[in-house]
Design a protein around this nucleic acid. Sequence first.
DNA 1: CGGAATCCCTTCCGATACTG
DNA 2: CAGTATCGGAAGGGATTCCG
Lengths: 121, 121
Amino acid sequence: MKDNVSGCAVEEAMRLLGGRWRIVLLSYLMGGAKRFSEIRRAVPNISQRMLTLDLRALEEAGLLTRTVYAEVPVKVEYRLTDEGLRLRELVEMLRAIGLRLRGQADGGGAFLAPDAVNHSQ
Amino acid sequence: MKDNVSGCAVEEAMRLLGGRWRIVLLSYLMGGAKRFSEIRRAVPNISQRMLTLDLRALEEAGLLTRTVYAEVPVKVEYRLTDEGLRLRELVEMLRAIGLRLRGQADGGGAFLAPDAVNHSQ
DNA sequence: CGGAATCCCTTCCGATACTG
DNA sequence: CAGTATCGGAAGGGATTCCG
C-alpha cells in the first residue's frame, strides 16, 4: 500500500537519481552531448546493461534526449536537456560531499573535477 | 579492489545518502534534535527497522549524534552534527528537484502530494 | 555500433515478534 | 520507549549472449 504523504519531494528525487550511476552519467554529460561508446569508455565500471537502463530512465524523466543517427554504423547521441543542465549544482555538491566524507582529495580521476567536466564537446 | 575512476566521490556520497529514507531523515532533523518516537511519527511510512538502521548509518558517517538518556522511560535523542547541518543545501536542492520533476511528470502518475516533511526551520 | 534478452546474485526494505 | 532478531519479498545491479 503506497502512501506518498510522507514521501515528500526528496524521496521522489532520490528515486530518480539515487542509483549508483545516474548522477555520474549526468556529470559526464555536463560536458556536452556524447555517444554511447564515449560514455562507456568514460565510465568503464558500469555495465552496458545498466548504462542503457539508466540512460533510458534519465531520458524518460526529461533530463536528457536520445538521438539516433541512421548511419551505417549506428550512432546514438545523448544530450542533457535544459532540465538536466539545471542539475549541475546538485552534481557538484554531491561530489564535494563525497570528497569531504572521505576526508581526502582523491579527485576521482579525470572528468569529475568541476572544470574537467567542461570539455566543450 | 576496483579502480573507481568513474566518479568515486559521487558514488560514495550516493552510497551513503542514496537510500530511500536517509535524506528524508536528515531533512526532518534539520529542524533540531528529535527523539526516536518523534521521527517515527513524522515519517510514518518508514519501518522501525529501517529507521534504526538508517540512523545508525548516518551516525557512523558522522552526520548525526545519538544520545541516550538513562531515564525511566529510555529517551534517545538524535541531533545533526556540524557536518550534517552542511547538507541542508543539498536537501533543499533535492526537494526542489523532486517538486519540479513532479510538476512535469508525463505518464507515471502525476498527482501532487503535500510535502509532509518540510521542516525547513 | 548500440543495444535487447536472459540469468543470477546482492542489497534494500517491510512485517512481525521479542527485549531491556 | 527504543530498540533487536529473523524472515522473505522486491528491487538493484553484473555477466554473458544474441541481434538489427
